[in-house]
Design a protein around this nucleic acid. Sequence first.
DNA 1: GCAAGGTC
Length: 838
Amino acid sequence: MRLIITEKDNAARRIAEILSEGSASASRQNGVNVYRWGNTRVVGLSGHVVGVDFPEEYNDWRDVEPVELIDADVTKEPTQENIVTTLKQLAREADEATIATDYDREGELIGKEAYELIREETDAPVDRVRFSSITEREVRDAFANPDDIDFDLAAAGEARQIIDLVWGAALTRFLSLSARQLGDDFISVGRVQSPTLKLIVDREREIQAFDPEDYWEIFADLQKNGSGFEAQYFYDDDGKEAERVWVEDDADDAYADLTGVDAATVTSVRRRTRTDSPPTPFNTTAFISAASSLGYSAQQAMSIAEELYTTGYITYPRTDNTVYPDDLEEDALLDEFVGAGHFGEDAEKLLEQDDITATEGDEETTDHPPIHPTGEIPPKVDLSDDEWEIYELVVRRFFATVAEAATWEHLRVVADAGGRSLKANGKRLVEPGYHEVYPYSSASENHVPDVEEGEELAISEVRMEAKQTQPPRRYGQSRLIQTMEDKGLGTKSTRHNSIEKLYDRGYIEGDPPRPTTLAMAVVEAAEEFADHVVSDEMTARLEADMTAIANGEESLDTVADESREMLKRVFDELRDSREEIGEHLQESLKADKTLGPCPKCGEDMLVRRSRQGSYFVGCDGFPECRNTLPLPSTGEPQVLEDHCEEHDMHHVKMLAGRDTFVHGCPRCEAEKADESEDEVIGPCPECGVAPEEQRGDGDEAEGGELAIKHLRSGSRLVGCTRYPDCDYSLPLPRNGDISVTEAFCEEHDLPELVIDADSDDPWELGCPICNYEEYQARTAVEDLEDLSGIGSATAEKLGDAGVDSLAALREADPDIVATEVQGVSATQVREWQDELEA
DNA sequence: GCAAGGTC
């Protein structure tokens, strides 16, 4: 039997299709897809299926000195048991095996890991094929010319694994132990995350140190044929043109001169034609950046792209390449879009061009083609609005790369008024070119009318504006990813995750991300004692070492040992400063949790966590002062910069994914609840007076009533007046005025409610019981979507079939028990759905 | 429980 191993299931399926000419069939083994035809089997891994770690005896952070990790063994253990088992079972039957993982360094290492698992079972020959895109031609070529695994290249990847683990784990444990942060809130550092964090921290330092300067700008409106245009005052600053006037008296003088005359005389008119080249093909970074200008975070953009890739509508979204492969036929791909409603006309127009040649970027790699549509076009109804918007972006980017350049006409007019110079720059799009098919990049014009030298233009108004220089801007997520790429930090697959990790670790907040006090302290500590780990030089050095290993000039052991020696020297420095570092980190952690002074004793009020795990606001003077305030029960609290004037307290935001909301000032919220009275609306269905026939034998009518209640934590609910004896309750929305209407629900004996009755668009919530029942039915379907990553249409169908939870899914198919929730692909869910329907 | 890198 011949065994072929790919990096992912999708690649396995497509390679099987190509090599078998469509005759391959799929079956499942230990929950893993295996494609087969004749004597051949193809199995897809899930990236790395083994991972590096320390032996078990190093697991306890308290028992092991962090420095001991430096010389600890590094072992490789399976992390994807099902796939490893399947691979080994298949290997036992194999006479030959072919590694067909991705064509890059990490792919070589993943291939070598598969090779070693195969070697545990058989001595059958193992070869390696390399291809940059899964097209018929490339795949057939590759399989016709097999090569060997490049063990040196794989060793380069292993050096990275070992160095990252040893540095990351040893320093992470050291900082966490020194600050006594051992739970979920440990303090992490790493080769990629820490230099990335330093970028953000350095920018914040510049902002904090920034000293704004005053300057003035002067504008004049000039008239031509009854319509006006704006011109700006400028002067010659040592041969350079300057618009900013730094001295107020100078600005006043210029303003006085300009207002002293009624007209300006045109002294020069210059026209220039500029070519505006179409953009280059999308790699991951360029894609994230384009999606970000549509309002998507890096993480959102990538997960939508991954979904579009798995469903077959776009190519692999993780790529460094910006040059389309030779066998991408641009006109054939355009042809697919002809007649496809939304895109048809644009595709036809592009096909009419004399020459269809795509642009090329600077980066040409072997990993994957640039991101482009596959030519399989989804019906719009099958995608969510977001998915469609991203899909359209990818399609239009492809269109743009084969479209013609745009041309602009630039018009520059200089005029003299009272001895002062004015200028106006106009911009007109003469040939729209690619802008016609790619509306995302700016094509805005600035109208300046045709004028001639010597012409007199009336001045209708002169304005002087006092301004201040602005501090540098914070990095936005896509700018940060771009900078990481420039500095070689992370990879196309990991950069967006690294940023997400900084959020999770409590190092950055908000968008654009701001560093927390803790982040500043971590970077400071690292700069002082382990400068290497916050500098991008560590990555540069590692890259150089990896290249040397890949070229056979250095050995993995030498490189790893040198790195270990370097880390030992770092620990020599750290040893004596443990206390000092710990204290600094602890103070910073406290600063991030501080809301303001306690009204009872003046100490700080802090966000704290109870033993049960819920958050509340408590006084730092505990146990002497026992003052507390409640916080909402959902989400992780985050202290905002916003501030309540009345109570001198920072506002709090509760982070809970899509349910994130701003709680505001905890004292205001508590006081609001104290001042409001419960509003009774009807009988409690659990313990109120109900008609005799609706009551079960054991039920007792205690006379409980339902009331609208405001809790001190800021939440509102409809609850029983006999609480806590009866804990019946229904949730109400957090925001908006609640009013009770005349309309009445006969079934539940309750009035209908309206939220925000005063606004133009009130929400008619209706009977609170009916509303809650509808809400539960709706969220069951949403939960299912979240669990399985399936589309809403499928989830609804499953809901209709009575499957409303993962547990129900498992009941329907015991095989699912072995599958990780996150590992459930859309294809699998569709299979289960088919089974259920049959 | 630590990293970064694959993958879902």
